[in-house]
Structure formats: structure tokens, C-alpha cells
Design a protein around this nucleic acid. Structure first.
Length: 273
DNA sequence: AGGACTGTTCCGCG
DNA sequence: GCGCGGAACAGTCC
């Protein structure tokens, strides 16, 4: 479920697994993803997140992974292991900067929406310039959010998904944070009051921290496919819960569609539009 | 069988 | 420029 927190966790995992290690091979298991590459002997220096991208720095190049809807990463028990839906595999040699790591890692993606590209490091700034600034971990206040979305006229919730304004907010994060801030997702951006911007700003950082902490557990077990919400109960307050009672007031939660995407809200908890 | 889905891009229309 | 709907991508899970 890759939004900002999930991509952050995947990047941390990739960094632990790969940083400082030699590449023994880059296996393109789905040729739709990337042309075959020979990167043997090159070294993964580090892995960083920017927006919803994972950036693997390999010598003078960067392998840029975009997980889209269903992409994920996992550590493999053997160099030739091929878990279901594996699309790209990195075989690794030598101990990493955090000790022994797995013999290989893979990008897995059942739906095959994920993308990968390899580009010279000097081309990275131009790619990243297309994304807005990060809403986390640096604290952002209400004025920052208002300025980032200034000029947009439509409803707030779809506006939050504009990656060129603010990078990393996804459909779940948007619904959940608006619920926590008691803001109606249909409110036009120009109608937001300063107090509402502040309420929203106050909610985002702690919510991302909470998701990271909750999902950290699924990454702590690095023995198999260790990524994203594999089964388990829906951990969210409103997402995917239409018809269920609002955790705050008990009224049935609503699902509406905005810009073609589901939005979940409690009509009893939001102020007037 | 049919619909919905955590992301993004493209097109056409207004 | 903005925003929407729709389609496309491709697969799984109700």
C-alpha cells in the first residue's frame, strides 16, 4: 500500500539490506519494466526516499523505483529465489553497512503498474523537480499548506493528491487526515479558513508517524516478503469503512467519489462547508 | 459476474 | 490554468 509512509519503510528496508554492498547482478524478470542492465561490480551506496520514489544510488547512476498501486520490496532467502510477482531482482555480495544482508532483494508487483528507470545521477534533480516539497518529517504549519495549494479552486481532498504541490500524500492519507482534522473533503480550497489549515497541518505529521510505527512491525520480520499490510484488519479510521459507525460520533460513515477516487468521511463530524 | 482498489498519465470537454 | 470524467495500465479480492 505505497503512500509516503510505506515507501519510507521500503526505502529504510532497502537501505539496510543493500547499502554498501556490491551488485552481483540486476535481473530484469519482467522486461516491460526496464531494459536488461549489466551493473555487476558496481556498489549500492545508499537508498533514499523522495515523494513516493525509492532512489537506489549505484555508482554514478540512480535506480528509481515507483511502486504505484501494488508494488513492494522483499528480501530473498537465496540469490535465485523468485517469489510470486517478482519483477526485478538485485543479487548482492559482501556485507552491507549494517552487517550481513540478504543474498538478494526483489521488487514485487502483482498488478505490474510499478515503474523502474536507471538514470545518471546528474539527471536526478530534473526528475525530482517535478515534485512538490515533502510534508514530513519537517513540521509544516497551516500557512505552508495554504501556500502549497494556493491557486487550486476545486475540493480539498483531490487537491491534496497533486504531487507537484506536495509530494507523498495518497488517497488513504488524504481521507484519514481530513477526518482527524474534522474538515469536509468537499470544501473548496479557497474556502479553507486559517484555523482549518492549522488543524490539518497539526494532524499530518503525527498521523504519518503513527502509520510508520504501526507498519514497522511488518518490516521487522525480514525473513520473507516483508512489506505492506498483508492481510490483517483494516487499521484505518474511515478508509474502506462506509456504513460502519464513526469512531468519534457513531454515525454511519459515508463514501463519496471525488475525481474518480473514493473518499471516506463522517458527515456528522465535519463542520459546515 | 461485476465492481472496487493505497497511483499516474493521457485525452477531450468546459 | 484548472477540473472533471473516462480510459488505460493489469491483477486480486470480495
Amino acid at each position: 500500500m505505497p503512500e509516503l509512509p510505506e515507501v519510507e519503510l521500503m526505502c529504510r528496508a532497502l537501505h539496510r539490506w543493500c547499502a554498501g554492498r556490491e551488485l552481483l547482478g540486476l535481473d530484469v524478470l519482467d522486461e516491460k519494466l526496464l531494459p536488461a542492465q549489466d551493473l555487476r561490480g558496481q556498489r549500492v551506496s545508499r537508498v533514499e526516499r523522495r515523494a513516493k520514489l525509492a532512489l537506489l544510488f549505484i555508482d554514478a547512476q540512480v535506480l528509481v523505483l515507483h511502486f504505484r498501486m501494488t508494488g513492494g520490496v522483499c528480501a530473498l532467502p537465496s540469490p535465485e529465489a523468485r517469489p510470486p510477482h517478482a519483477r526485478l531482482r538485485l543479487r548482492l555480495g559482501g556485507p552491507g553497512s549494517s552487517g550481513e544482508g540478504p543474498p538478494a532483494v526483489a521488487l514485487v508487483d502483482p498488478r505490474r503498474f510499478a515503474t523502474a528507470r536507471l538514470l545518471p545521477e546528474e539527471e536526478l534533480p530534473a526528475l525530482l523537480a517535478g515534485f512538490g516539497p515533502e510534508p514530513w518529517p519537517e513540521p509544516r504549519d497551516g500557512a505552508w499548506w495554504a501556500a502549497r495549494l494556493a491557486g487550486l479552486r476545486g475540493p480539498l481532498k483531490p487537491a491534496l493528491l497533486h504531487q507537484e504541490r506536495v509530494a507523498g500524500i495518497g488517497n488513504i492519507l488524504a481521507s484519514e487526515c481530513l477526518f482527524l482534522a474534522r474538515i469536509d473533503p468537499r470544501t473548496p480550497v479557497p474556502s479553507l479558513q486559517p484555523a482549518q489549515w492549522e488543524a490539518f497541518a497539526a494532524v499530518v505529521g503525527p498521523f504519518i508517524d503513527a502509520v510508520l510505527e504501526a507498519e514497522q512491525r511488518s518490516f521487522d520480520d525480514e525473513s520473507g516478503i516483508a512489506y505492506v499490510n498483508t492481510g490483517g484488519p483494516n487499521p484505518f479510521a474511515v478508509y474502506g469503512r462506509e456504513g460502519q459507525p464513526c469512531p468519534r460520533c457513531g454515525a454511519p460513515l459515508q463514501r463519496i467519489v471525488q475525481a474518480g477516487r473514493g473518499t471516506w468521511l463522517c458527515e456528522g463530524c465535519v463542520g459546515s462547508i
